[in-house]
Design a protein around this nucleic acid. Structure first.
Lengths: 133, 133
DNA sequence: CAGCATCCTCAAGGATACTG
DNA sequence: CAGTATCCTTGAGGATGCTG
């Protein structure tokens, strides 16, 4: 844990610090932030606070309550998500992106856009390869 | 498979198509492209062709030959990586990013940059939370 | 409703050994 | 050197049931 985090001020000749070491922070952050479910949760929170159940539905597909909570807690612990507890008789909890989380989400949107733009090409390549195989 | 891929031209009122369905392509692409090892392989290929062994060393950390090959094949099948076989007596194979792969890598760089910029803040938050706990 | 605890399954992935 | 095949371990994650 807690490795030193040299800013981009002193990159290697190749450009960025690059993965010869294999300990680049993005790797860890991805694993932290993208436990495969995080990527699904972020867009579900894009337009405001959402409650547990709603979130469960929004993320949908194969997520379980367990995984949702677990991922949510991790994101919260890293300041990417804010958890608001309304102390009402039927418990009411709201999750929303923190400013930091929204910032990260913007990066995700970039990735999402890339995929949208290039997915067809990838699909084409996939087929042409089995074809020439 | 082969879901329709509406370009960002017709987003939902909220912004993008958003994950109510849970079948957004970025999810699948991430799982395809980011089998957790892909993210490590891309930077290792940033500055030109690399051979299997070298790649194994470059990615380093916990990757095994099995996982390397497996991931490489998947990336290749999607046109993100090019595999060149030199038919020499000691087998010689080179991997490099395709133009498509380089394009995707640029997105990864963005993510990487975000992490570099915000990791300290996340770390601070992490600590302050256990503090106020 | 939110969410924790428990049990159990299954497959991702490591280690090892072998081949062209 | 590059790559496959096999075995085996581990833990991610689902299902269920209970609580405040």
């Amino acid at each position: 844990m807690a490795d030193n985090m040299a800013p981009s001020s002193s990159p290697s000749p190749e450009g960025r610090p690059e993965g010869t070491t294999g300990a680049c922070p993005s790797t860890r952050a991805l694993e932290l932030v993208a436990g495969k479910w995080a990527l699904r949760i972020f867009p579900a929170l894009e337009n405001g606070p959402v409650r547990n159940n709603e979130l469960l539905r929004r993320v949908g597909n194969g997520i379980s309550q367990k995984m949702l909570t677990q991922t949510l807690r991790e994101l919260e612990a890293n300041g990417l998500i804010l958890r608001t507890i309304f102390d009402s008789v039927p418990p009411h909890v709201e999750y929303r992106l923190s400013p930091l989380g929204e910032s990260l989400n913007r990066t995700f949107v970039g990735l999402d856009d890339w995929v949208r733009a290039h997915w067809p090409e990838m699909e084409r390549i996939r087929k042409s390869q089995v074809d020439s195989d």
